[in-house]
């Protein structure tokens, strides 16, 4: 899952540099992790972290929000209530991260916006050639892996393991 000790990777492949966290954010996340390790349910954890992070006045743009959402998603996936990410989710996340919107991505790369919209919404698939072109613009590559490996990478336990480095 992670590239190195200071990188947190979400289930959709977004990278968050933990070194960018302020002391307050690290403190907040350390406490979140302690609650996470109690193995709360999906919605129980969602309700708790939403209010806790709010009470700590952590801004909506803080990486803490993204990490907490990811922790929540992992529980939801494990409980069978959230769709595990597939290639459309990775594409959407990478496009959002690098270009800000599908529109900007399509303007910059010449990829047809209508076709891309259909692909990301699950109504169509990309041809392999077009997928390669899109991945090239996103500095990404296609990987085939065992389902077990994918499940492990998306698990709550893996996220806990990575975030435990915060406490060190």
């Amino acid at each position: 899952m992670m590239v190195n000790d200071y990188n947190y990777e979400t289930v959709t492949g977004r990278q968050i540099d933990l070194r960018s966290l302020t002391a307050d954010e690290k403190d907040c996340l350390t406490f979140v992790l302690s609650k996470y390790k109690e193995k709360p349910g999906w919605s129980e954890f969602a309700a708790w972290w939403f209010n806790y992070v709010d009470d700590r006045r952590i801004g909506s743009d803080s990486p803490v929000q993204r990490i907490c959402s990811d922790l929540e998603a992992r529980i939801g996936i494990a409980e069978g209530k959230v769709k595990p990410p597939d290639y459309q989710d990775y594409l959407a996340a990478f496009i959002d991260e690098q270009y800000g919107s599908r529109y900007k991505f399509c303007q910059a790369t010449g990829v047809d916006q209508g076709q891309l919209s259909k692909v990301i919404s699950g109504k169509a698939d990309l041809s392999l050639d077009l997928l390669r072109k899109v991945l090239s613009h996103l500095h990404a590559s296609l990987i085939i892996q065992r389902e077990e490996t994918a499940r492990s990478a998306a698990s709550p336990e893996e996220a806990s393991r990575v975030l435990a480095a915060l406490a060190r």
Binding site: D70, A73, I77
Partner: peptide, 23 residues
């Protein structure tokens, strides 16, 4: 009938917070 995309709940929570929040 499928489950919602992985990040859609995150989008929803952000919008909910932005809608009502005045920090």
């Amino acid at each position: 009938r499928e489950k919602h995309p992985t990040e859609l709940w995150d989008v929803f929570h952000k919008c909910l917070r932005d809608l009502f929040h005045a920090l």
